[in-house]
């Protein structure tokens, strides 16, 4: 989940100035459905004073796109067109107490809609940045002029940042070289001085009591505890089954004692004492586990007579 500021959340959950402005005399449509953002900005401009009397928006987009659009309408109401033209995407983001870097393009879209709407009002052909320069990012239709301006306004230094702000380079990556060229040109020789990130201490958490998953597991039928005789019989049966293979190696296994899930065996023959007796123990243990259906432990032991 994105780390949105309270301001962003507030403007998303309770957007102001949403909807159609019937008496609009300036309209700016920007964005693209394929990028997942599109915005129509509608302004009512006083022809005498050039003051923006009212502003409304319609947005197809994520939380921060809706919040940026709504914030923009609040910011520019009461401004003259010339004042409004000075509003940058940085201003929009700052008004919202910041946007996650990946979402800065939402504020860029807002600034563009504003420029488009004012051009529309003035009867100018909106000099869409996207027609001005060479098309750099073919995936998202972003051209060099927009990238240059965004790099300059926001002090961007990496291709990743450019993608976050303009979407350029966020698709097939084939334009990364061109974006790097723009970055070098705009930033001159200025090396990036990255600010250290502020690390927030996580709040300590307390464990909560967890409820069982539904459906509640049916209580397992209580298994009657095995009698010692039954246990020994089962162990003897397992030993009987493996004796032939032990004997092939010249060995044998003899039951000495049983204590709970621990079985004491006397192992004799070729493999006694050598490291592979460990394997035999593991092998017998496995067989016992299968037979008993629970973890069992085998402990090598001396024959009773010698104890």
């Amino acid at each position: 989940m994105w780390d949105y500021s309270d301001k962003v959340k507030d403007y998303f959950f309770n957007p102001v100035n949403a909807g159609v402005l019937e008496e609009a005399n300036a309209v700016g449509d920007v964005g693209s459905i394929s990028c997942g953002d599109a915005l129509r900005l509608m302004l009512k401009v006083d022809p005498e004073t050039d003051v923006i009397l009212d502003a409304r928006f319609q947005t197809f987009g994520c939380g921060s796109a809706i919040a940026s659009s709504s914030a923009l309408t609040e910011m520019i109401k009461g401004m003259t067109l010339d004042q409004a033209l000075k509003v940058t995407n940085q201003d929009i983001a700052a008004y919202l107490d910041g946007l996650p870097p990946e979402k800065m393009h939402c504020s860029v879209m807002g600034a563009e809609a504003l420029h488009a709407a004012i051009a529309n009002y003035r009867g100018e052909e909106w000099k869409d940045d996207h027609e001005e320069g060479e098309l750099v990012c073919k995936c998202f239709g972003v051209d060099a002029a927009l990238i240059e301006r965004t790099v300059r306004d926001n002090g961007l230094v990496t291709v990743e940042q450019v993608a976050n702000y303009t979407k350029a380079g966020g698709g097939c990556c084939s334009c990364h070289e061109k974006i790097e060229d723009i970055l070098i040109a705009v930033n001159g020789e200025l090396a990036a001085t990255a600010k250290p990130a502020i690390v927030q201490q996580p709040k300590p958490r307390t464990l909560v009591q967890i409820a069982p998953l539904k459906p509640e597991p049916a209580p397992a039928p209580a298994k009657p505890a095995m009698t010692m005789v039954r246990k020994i019989q089962l162990i003897e049966k397992v030993l009987e089954d493996i004796r032939p293979s032990l004997k092939m190696d010249g060995g044998n296994a003899e039951l000495i004692d049983v204590d709970g899930d621990t079985v004491y065996l006397h192992l004799t023959g070729a493999c006694m004492g050598c490291s592979s007796s460990g394997l035999t123990i593991a092998g017998i243990q496995e067989r016992l586990m299968l037979a008993f259906g629970k973890p069992m432990r085998v402990v090598p032991s001396k024959p009773t007579a010698e104890v």
Binding site: G19, D29, I33, S34, A38, L39, E112
Partner: peptide, 23 residues
Amino acid sequence: RQLSPYWGKDGPKATPDFAPAYA
């Protein structure tokens, strides 16, 4: 949908008048 420029009063706009500058 009320916020969406692709949506009219009570359905998608029959004649889409919304064609953003770069698509």
